[in-house]
């Protein structure tokens, strides 16, 4: 049991850690500026892209914990773009111009917010907030997505099978996120689009399918099934 007479209270320590992290971000941005200067000379340089991916991943995974949510999300977005570039699934040069400036703007936005203690920086499923129904068969993925979405203030209700959508219509969601494999064991083959359209006809909210594939065909299938796209 910690001695409360000698140790700072958790709230104070959180603020101290936040300040320490803020100072570390100064070093992180210096590192990013150095990487940027290398990329300006050659934006396909593997070593620089690896370093950038690592730096962005570190910020994306940590910034939110210290209350720098805008910065964390911006870093996450750019990290994913660099990852695609490194895996060469997208054409080179997908990182938007001025990415570092955009990160700086995100940091400034976090810094300019009214001083919050860390306890209140993460929102957890705000009562009356937008509701998302998540249809996902994989329990691990469902829990992960639920945690992420609730931390942004959404109320998330998980369903493990698309057929459950037929049963619960009393309080419709604001958004439906559906794993396109969430159709139980049945193989609907060519009738898959018909199956989804029939189920989704009862819902007026936007629908997005989720999946590992982002190909043109996958997007087309999502649209044919009544979704607005695929995530």
């Amino acid at each position: 049991m910690p001695d409360s007479t000698n140790s700072p209270q958790p709230g104070n320590r959180l603020e101290q850690l936040k300040e320490a992290y803020k100072k570390r971000l100064t070093l992180e941005f210096a590192r990013l500026r150095e990487i940027e200067s290398h990329l300006l000379q050659d934006n396909t340089r593997q070593e620089s892209l690896d370093a950038l991916h690592s730096a962005l991943h570190t910020i994306a995974g940590a910034a939110g914990t210290f209350g720098f949510h805008t910065l964390g999300e911006a870093a996450r977005e750019f990290e994913q773009r660099v990852a695609k570039q490194l895996s060469q699934t997208e054409s080179l040069g997908t990182l938007p111009g001025g990415w570092l400036n955009k990160l700086q703007i995100a940091l400034d936005a976090d810094n300019s917010k009214v001083k919050h203690s860390l306890e209140t920086t993460q929102q957890r499923g705000i009562e009356g907030g937008p509701t998302i129904w998540l249809v996902e068969r994989d329990n691990m993925l469902a829990n992960y997505a639920k945690n992420q979405l609730t931390s942004f203030g959404f109320q998330v209700h998980c369903l493990s099978d698309a057929n459950e959508l037929e049963k619960c219509r009393s309080h419709p969601p604001d958004l439906l996120l559906i794993d396109h494999h969430a159709i139980g064991a049945a193989d609907f083959g060519a009738d898959l689009a018909v199956f989804w359209k029939a189920i989704l006809s009862n819902y007026d909210c936007p629908v997005f399918f989720t999946g590992a594939e982002e190909s043109f065909n996958a997007r087309l299938q999502a649209l044919r099934a009544g979704g607005r796209g695929i995530l």
Partner: peptide, 23 residues
């Protein structure tokens, strides 16, 4: 999803997302 399969092959069924809420 590919990473999930890797985790499951190692017998890991639980993941905590980062950034986490310290409280």
């Amino acid at each position: 999803p590919d990473e999930l399969q890797r985790y499951k092959n190692l017998g890991v069924e639980q993941v905590i997302s980062k950034p986490f809420d310290p409280m």
